[in-house]
Design a protein around this nucleic acid. Structure first.
Lengths: 191, 191
DNA sequence: CGTCTATTTGAATGTACTCAAAAGCGGTGG
DNA sequence: CCACCGCTTTTGAGTACATTCAAATAGACG
């Protein structure tokens, strides 16, 4: 709870009453590794904020190949934004990678909070803007960098994830096969 | 001007006074093709809304290769969001592809408007959210689809752009070389 | 027209993939 | 506590999609 309030306080300041109202409209859940919080073809009604543990969102193409869109560990938000925002069936899975404690906010409660604490519009605007910028950067990286460069950049940006996430998910995040990822890694270590 | 107000009215409703205030804080400019509205290593202070014509944002890697991030034609927003939001020097060019009439809003005026028309926080939140979702989709497409599939998807999504934008920019948008794009096109036409 | 840029075409190359098999590792139950 | 099973990672050989480089052709604009 503390982590969430700190996260919000970085961008807007809430009164103690507003904080209480916010807290009354969210839930905290614990999930074990491998739990699926969201599946494709269902409408996502929740946004998640990670207190502890790690989650990932991913899609599956050709019924076989997974593509990691996003990892979220302590202090990060995650959700199926397409489904959540459009209220249409989504395309993503959201899975717990490492036993996690998660703050859950529902669409209805978020709308309620927007009405009662308009400042939150600003907070989520900033959140969306920052997320947009980092997706733009990742998109450009995917177009302009080699797999090796994307790997190095990921290591620099998310050093803690590298140690906690199975390698095949890291491979999927930078957009290569697990086999190629392994070869690339040993090639880099040899230097 | 009408186009911008319609665009806004899709998500929030403004009073006539609010519309007037908004209009007093924006500018309309016309630019000829090839004009650069933004260059890397400068701080972007403007957001653009296209009335007529086409713009594109792109970066350059290795001082040679262009990578198109975004096209914007009638009714679309464009900007160097990273620089605009962070107030740091950016990495993008923004160039006019087709003579354009553009609504320009400055960072200062946007902040002013946020204070005086808080509803605009909501509007730009929704704008950022939608943009986020479409970037996520494009990112996943880049990872899971072949060049040919990305090409077909772009044709379906932006049929009017295909006819108006030089082919090399389309190639860059889907992330292939102009040469490969040309071969792919003729391969598809032969069917 | 003539020049400059965009597009097409072809040959050689490379990066990353597929398929297959072996080795490593982690959790579970006996 | 060890042994086994399933999943992850590694390694290798062959392949494919897309790139690079080069040259020819087509198109746009002054």
């Amino acid at each position: 709870m503390k982590l969430l309030l700190e996260n919000i306080a970085k961008h807007i300041s809430l009164t103690p009453e507003e904080e209480q109202l916010l807290i009354s409209k969210i839930e905290i859940h614990s999930y074990k590794a491998k739990t699926l919080l969201q599946q494709p073809n269902t409408i996502s009604n929740q946004l998640y904020f990670v207190n502890t543990g790690i989650l990932r969102s991913f899609s599956i193409s050709d019924n076989i190949i997974e593509h990691v869109l996003h990892f979220a560990c302590e202090g990060w938000w995650i959700g199926d934004m397409y489904s959540y925002l459009s209220r249409k069936p989504g395309f993503l899975f959201i899975e717990v990678i490492e036993n996690a404690e998660v703050v859950v906010i529902s669409k209805e409660n978020q709308e309620f909070l927007y009405h009662n604490i308009p400042k939150l519009e600003r907070f989520f605007r900033i959140l969306a803007e920052n997320s947009l910028v980092s997706h733009q950067e990742r998109l450009m990286d995917n177009m302009s960098l080699s797999a090796e460069e994307r790997f190095e950049k990921m290591c620099r940006k998310y050093p803690n994830l590298i140690l906690r996430v199975p390698q095949k998910h890291l491979a999927s995040y930078i957009g290569v096969t697990p086999e190629f990822f392994s070869k690339m890694k040993s090639r880099l270590l040899r230097k």
